[in-house]
Design a protein around this nucleic acid. Structure first.
Length: 603
RNA sequence: GAUUCCGUAGCUCAGCUGGUAGAGCAAUACACUUUUAAUGUAUGGGCCCUGGGUUCGAAUCCCAGCGGGAUCACCA
């Protein structure tokens, strides 16, 4: 402890005694409270802690508990200018322009920013000017939360502002925020753009990048719009288990966890489909759920390990009805989110206005390859795929081959919302067989910008067929198809045996949809906290092993030739160089040049 | 998983063919009563991601690692 104080004294000797005393004090506080070394704080962070303590000494609580009676919001006051209106607003101080006895600052609340005007003699009508000179000008920092009471006016330049009559510190900010600035031409300087820092510190991202906040406001609007649409249609929002003993409803690698009391493995859900259908069996007409799903697979700009899907099941309907429903739903959502059915995604303008084009998978493959899959054997499909330059292997069944051809040659071409219908049976184990063709299923996917955003079926409700399809999946899985399901959910089959009415179900990838509606090519931009490798905090050591070794070696003689010591410790050039520089920097040793010889000594 | 680019002050970024670190903003001090990227003057602030190598000398060149981005592959 004493040693550290000495180090601080040496390091900070250029600072005035007053500041120094404070630093030592606050260092002791920090050490006791946070078990943290003062060296980990930047100069500005130390200064802010210093201001914090000064405020406390002045009897100002930097973290008051009292309610603050906010009456207005920045955006509204600027939109509806009412001269002289008395207001009370609160937010972060994001800029400060001090001009002697008058100052301007910007206050940022949840709605935006508004300028506030401070006049010394109005803040401090008497002799004592500390509140303005010290508290406002010096002890407040950018990022602090303050509340102001005053009246609305326009400055000579015409900027709507609040003439402050009284201000209150509401919460002190100890860490400087990134500070992007916008110049007169609207150009942004010093933008906080590094994706890693933005995702890891989303809170800071949200404070300084209003366009990021907008994305998430739109995200919430999308959920509300969808919910409203379903509720208006009379369907019920439900919740089903996230922890499942059999992960079903999709083919994906699940996360595994363990339940201690039951002593069994449990899986995080990969889909909620099978549970929602159980509820249809139970007699609900329409059920939907926004479900967080978890898949233990690769991560990239369109895949996060946890993502949100919406699934809805409606009884007595088929997939044709669901197509109508889906296009009306998406048109409604696009308008609620963006005010228009049109949205821009990269170079494309997408129009979500219903109705959407409907193309069968067979027709789509004919359109883009000239090849007709109808009535072909597995061998013929295999050869066709191969001739198209698609990587094929012997584990692939008919359905998989068709899916590969579609994915490779067709999918990417559908920019405007398009329903692709009638998928091969093998790929759709939960979907009802097509009424006109036993090789196909009554399934559609909605393609937007070459990617699927929705998937829907006339749900399979024949329990015997369902059992056979599950068993076929298990066979495919054993054959080596890692996309095929490995588990049979017998409880789900039991529920079907009681009877499920004809039902159509729809699943929508919410993250992907909001990417389209907010023009973001990356899923990380539309998730508050995208998954990241955990940060590693490197503990700063005062002396490395090398440095200690050099110091100890030197201790015996106190002073010796630099080259001789180097030979003695026998470190690599790099290690030697870094260590000596560090020791010198910390004021523990000194290198001097006498004549042509370099000497090193302990201080 | 493959390829490729990046990691320098609180933030945004310079730093050439190796010679012990620069700018703007932010910070500190002073001046300034309607400014607005306020202004002017002065000052302080760096484990140059980590480890190793080459070299008299590395932020810079080489190797390995860590973290991130992009592209591709994989992905109901």
């Amino acid at each position: 402890m004493t040693q550290k104080l000495v180090e601080i004294l040496t390091l900070e000797r250029k600072l005035s005694a007053k500041i120094l005393a404070f630093i030592v004090l606050s260092y002791l506080c920090c050490l006791k409270k946070y078990n943290m070394s003062a060296f980990e704080l930047s100069e500005q962070e130390i200064q802010r802690r210093e201001s914090l303590n000064k405020l406390r000494e002045m009897g100002i609580n930097p973290y008051p508990a009292d309610l603050y009676p906010v009456s207005d919001y920045a955006a509204e006051l600027k939109k509806q200018f009412v001269d002289g209106k008395q207001v009370c607003i609160a937010g972060r101080m994001m800029s400060q322009r001090v001009m002697g006895k008058a100052s301007f600052a910007e206050l940022q609340d949840s709605s935006g920013r508004i300028q506030v005007y401070f006049n010394r003699d109005e803040i401090c009508p008497g002799e004592d000017k500390t509140l303005y000179n010290d508290v406002f000008k010096k002890l407040l920092d950018l990022g602090d939360f303050i509340g102001v009471k005053g009246y609305v006016f326009k400055t000579q330049v015409g900027e709507t502002s609040i003439h402050v009559q009284e201000f209150t510190l509401l919460s002190k900010s100890l860490k400087p925020l990134p500070l992007p600035k916008i110049d007169a031409e609207g150009k942004i300087h010093d933008a906080f753009t590094d994706p890693e820092m933005r995702y890891r510190q989303r809170y800071a991202d949200l404070v300084v990048n209003p366009q990021v906040k907008d994305i998430f406001i739109k995200r919430t609007k999308l959920f509300s719009a969808m919910r409203q649409f379903f509720n208006d249609a009379g369907y019920m929002e439900v919740e089903t288990p996230v922890l499942q003993s059999i992960p079903g409803g999709a083919a994906a690698r699940p996360f595994v966890t363990h339940h201690n009391a039951l002593d069994i493995p449990l899986y995080m859900r990969i889909a909620n489909e099978l549970y929602l259908k159980r509820l249809i069996v139970g007699g609900f007409d329409g059920v939907y759920e926004f479900s967080k799903n978890f898949r233990n697979e690769g991560m990239d700009r369109t895949h996060n390990p946890e993502f949100t899907a919406m699934e809805i099941y409606v009884s007595y309907k088929d997939y044709n009805w669901m197509m109508d429903f889906t296009e009306r739903l998406l048109e409604h959502c696009a308008i609620e989110v963006n005010g228009s059915s049109e949205t821009t995604f990269g170079e494309h303008t997408i129009n979500f206005k219903a109705p959407y084009k409907r193309v069968t998978m067979r027709q789509s493959i004919i359109d883009f390859t000239g090849f007709d899959i109808a009535g072909k054997t597995e061998e013929e499909l295999f050869e066709a795929a191969k001739s198209m330059g698609i990587a094929v292997d012997s584990t692939m069944g008919k359905g998989k081959l068709i899916d590969e051809i579609f994915g490779e040659k067709c999918e990417g071409n559908y920019i405007q919302p398009t329903f692709i219908t009638d998928y091969p049976k093998e790929m759709s184990p939960l979907c009802k067989e097509h009424r006109d063709n036993p090789e196909l299923t009554e399934r559609f996917e909605l393609m937007v910008c070459g990617k699927e955003v929705a998937n829907a079926y006339s749900e399979l409700n024949d329990p015997i067929d369902q059992r056979e399809r599950f068993e076929e999946q298990v066979r495919l899985s054993e054959k080596g198809d890692d996309e095929a399901g490995q588990f049979i959910d017998y409880d789900f089959l039991r529920s079907l045996e009681y009877g499920m009415p004809p039902t159509s179900g729809l699943g929508i990838g919410m993250d992907r949809l909001i990417m389209y509606l907010t023009n973001n090519p990356s899923i990380q931009e539309v998730l508050f906290f995208p998954q990241m490798r955990p940060e590693v905090h490197q503990q700063k050591v005062e002396l490395s092993d090398n440095e200690k070794f050099i110091f100890d070696s030197l201790q015996k003689e106190q002073k010796m030739a630099l080259l001789r010591l180097k030979e003695l410790v026998n470190l690599s050039n790099k290690a030697w160089d870094v260590s000596v520089k560090n020791l010198t920097k910390q004021g523990l040793v000194k290198v001097t040049k006498i004549d042509e010889e370099l000497l090193i000594e302990i201080l």
